[in-house]
Simulated assay, not measured.
Amino acid sequence: MTTARDLAIVALDTASAKPVEQGDLSLALAGAEVFDLIEARALVLDDDRIVPSAPSPTGDRLLDEAAAALVRQEPYESIEDWLWRRGRGLSAAYVDDLERIGLTTRARGRRIPLRTGRTELVDSAARREAEERWTAGEPVLTALAAAAGFHDQPADGAEDLAGGTAATVLAAVGDALQELEAVRQRKVIEDAAFDNVWRGF
């Protein structure tokens, strides 16, 4: 399993207690894919630029799709640009894929936290593996969950990720999430101002 898929599983598993914003999770999933593609040797980082390597199948449909989507011309793409481009609708894509491969099932009477509809995880080796990483406090997984807003980052986990590639990717995820929140806040202010104008008539 990949970090991105494990993150999607954990998000579904914990969302009844702490709902997840689709946009936040999508950006975190795109960040998780960067980690997975680094591990698969499909890319390397040059400062904050994503430099693709020769493509090779990873065995994961969405991760192969991500690898195929990498910009292969200089000056290449920044991590944050990748997060915005790849992250669009990514949480829904992972929920769909979990259902496609039989890791979730439709349920009645429960509201799905990530999109319109109802779903729940089934007992599976993939779910148990994700839960093991989660319970063990695997630093990258917990840091991405904290960034997406459904987990509190433990202090010792932050120390494990200080410096290097992990810190670069997580900083880009954090910056993108801050920008998304700023967009949301602007929209709230603009909507409130629009409502005030109409009240004046």
Rank of each mutant, 00 (worst) to 15 (best):
A136H: 06
A192C: 03
A158E: 15
F201G: 09
V188P: 08
R199P: 03
I112G: 14
L141F: 00
K187C: 15
R61C: 07
P57S: 06
G102C: 05
T14K: 14
R128G: 05
A66K: 02
L62Q: 02
P52G: 13
E131V: 00
E65I: 10
G87A: 07
A162Y: 08
F150V: 00
R128A: 10
D160N: 14
V173I: 12
Y76H: 13
V140L: 09
G137A: 02
V44D: 06
E179T: 03
A166K: 10
L7M: 04
E190V: 12
Q185W: 14
A172P: 09
D195H: 13
R86V: 00
D81P: 06
V197Y: 10
S91E: 09
I189Y: 11
L144T: 01
W82E: 07
I9S: 12
A136L: 03
Y76F: 12
E99Y: 09
P57E: 02
G174H: 12
R61I: 03
D81T: 09
T116C: 12
A143R: 01
V122W: 11
E33D: 09
D13C: 04
A8C: 02
D60Y: 07
A28C: 02
G109P: 00
M1V: 06
T119I: 08
Y76G: 05
E77S: 09
A192I: 02
L83P: 08
E131Y: 00
V44C: 10
T165P: 13
I9W: 12
R115S: 03
G200V: 03
G174N: 14
R128S: 07
D123N: 05
A92T: 13
P52H: 03
M1T: 09
P75M: 02
A145S: 08
E131P: 00
D48P: 05
E120D: 09
R186T: 04
E80R: 13
W134M: 01
R72N: 07
D13S: 11
P154G: 07
L103P: 06
R41K: 14
E129K: 05
L114S: 03
A155Q: 13
D195R: 10
A17Q: 06
T105C: 11
V44A: 10
L70K: 05
T2G: 07
W198M: 08
R133S: 04
L45M: 00
V34C: 03
I189W: 15
E181L: 12
E33S: 02
A11T: 00
T119M: 15
A4L: 04
R127G: 00
D48A: 07
A8H: 06
D160Y: 14
G174E: 14
L45G: 01
A32I: 00
V140S: 15
E99M: 13
I38R: 13
R128C: 01
G23N: 05
S78F: 01
T168Q: 13
P52M: 03
A167R: 14
L70T: 01
R5A: 11
L180E: 13
D46P: 02
G174P: 04
A182Y: 06
L83S: 13
D156A: 10
D195Y: 12
R199A: 11
V183M: 10
R100Q: 15
S56L: 08
T116S: 11
